[in-house]
Amino acid sequence: MNRFLIQIKRELWEHKGALITTPIVALTIFVVLTILAGVAGRGVVQDSQFILQHDGMMSFYSYSSDGQQQSFVYHKGINGLTTIPDTTAQNSPMSLLPALPYIAFDHLAWLIALIYLLSCLFTDRKDKSILFWKSMPVSEWQNVLTKTFMAALVIPAIAWIAASAYNLFYLLFMTIWSLFSSVHHPDLLFQPQAVLTTAWSFLGSYLATSIWMLPFISWILLVSACAKKTPFLYLVLPLLALVLIEYTVLGSHHISQIIGSYINVSDPRAEQNMLNMSGWYHVWNVLSSVQFWLGLAATAGLLYTTVWLRENRFEN
């Protein structure tokens, strides 16, 4: 266990900029923008009111300084979005609000994961440090599985924490904001259960994405272990070649469709709208798909090849 933890620490030390600093900077930017928007918005909104609807949903009406009515809809969670009778709303429903940070950080997480994975088995060969790591009694299986674990679970976990932290900040900030505006019902404007429900739901959604992305993660690891230089080209060109060959020879698009199902990182099962149901449903949805299990078999093969390359072929 200690050995596994120190391996995780090593990854965090080495990729601190991507794994820690980047989410913190993104979170800081979101917080600053929110504060600026709040300060600017306070001058615009002159009056507002809540109307409790019959199904428990809430409408929030505000009036801008020029007397025009703006309306938003807010509700308790994300599960009932499609039932909201949003007849008066002209703008986006506010029910998306607690979900937005998770969607944004999810995309950021997979961008970070892509950069991390491409470099993690490449830079140690490039900077010659591979022989130092190889002088330690750590097997390549331990190494490769640690990096898989980082991409599939640690990076999304950091993103989830950052998104949750933003929502907590937003809850607090808007509570304070409402005290300085004409809105005097902070408990109505910010419902903690909505934040919690969203957090719980996206925990499932993130997990579903992680297990869905395992073949893609292992493909990038293989590329990282294989590339002599410019791993990104090694990542893209073979896939592009496969797509072109299939299209030229067979006239079909199956490979591009499979690749597309992994690139659409926020939604492992494209036919489902993630906001319509709890993210935990996606876990079940992924586990019950044939493509996931085929992908898992491909993951095993790709990881085995990656380990073989690390054990039998290296350069410095």
């Binding site: 120190i6 620490k9 090593r10 440090s129 130092f132």
Partner: peptide
Amino acid sequence: AILPSWLKVHQAIDYVAGVHP
């Protein structure tokens, strides 16, 4: 020249202490 350049001295000690019995 094979110690990784990004590693700090105390981290190198922590790492070896963590993986080497």
